[in-house]
Structures are given as C-alpha cells and as structure tokens.
C-alpha cells in the first residue's frame, strides 16, 4: 500500500476504472470529459501512472469486455484490484476529511 498521497492524475485514473474496465484511450477521454477538459492526460503520463499502479498491484490487466467495440489486440483493458479500490476509497476519505476541515474554517460552504 503506498504511503504517499496520490497525485490527482492517479486518483482520476482510479475513478475512471471504478465502474468498468477500460482501455488506455478510453481512460484519457473519460478523465477529460469528467473534468470538463481541465485534465488532459497525455499517453506518456497515463502509461507512467498505469505502470506504477500495476507494479503496486492497484490495477490489473483484464480481458476485454464482451461488448467492447474493437477487437484490436493492442488495446488492453485495465481494471481496479481490491487493493486499488481500497486505495481509492482511502484517498476519497482523506479528501473528504480535508474538505470538512476547510468547511470548518469557512473556506468552503
């Protein structure tokens, strides 16, 4: 389990994989759409993060879902592992606590 805080990019990637397994380009478009274009991952940033998440066991490669639109063998799908889900939940809890503190100081209503 990583002890350091997660970067926003890594957290967004985990959020992307929360519902269903996705391939690389789908993660990029999903993150861009959800953040209204504020976070636009480049392939190198994405795969840097995916490589590390995979090394840490937070995500794992999985088979393409049956309704996948493409059969291109180069497209690999990634899914959250249990550890990955737990890490994302921990991060979400940490962020929520942070928000609570900010709210208590009236930074945020």
């Amino acid at each position: 389990m990583p002890t350091t805080t997660m970067t926003p990019q890594v957290f967004q990637i985990l959020l992307s994989l929360a519902d269903a397994p996705r391939h690389g380009y789908a993660i990029i478009t999903d993150v861009r759409d959800r953040t209204g274009g504020q976070m636009d991952l480049t392939p190198s940033t994405l795969y840097d993060a995916l490589a590390r998440l995979s090394d840490q066991g937070l995500i794992a490669e999985t088979a393409a879902p049956p309704d996948a639109p493409t059969t291109d063998s180069r497209r690999r799908y990634y899914a959250l592992t249990k550890a990955g889900r737990a890490a994302a939940e921990d991060e979400a809890t940490r962020l929520a606590r942070l928000l609570d503190m900010a709210r208590a100081k009236k930074f945020y209503v």
Partner: peptide
C-alpha cells in the same frame, strides 16, 4: 506498453 502507447498517441 510500447505498441499500446503508440496506438493511444495516434488516436490522441
């Protein structure tokens, strides 16, 4: 990751 990155980069 090489092939996959190239693929994604082309799409991007």
């Amino acid at each position: 990751y090489g092939d996959e990155m190239r693929d994604v980069f082309n799409a991007a």
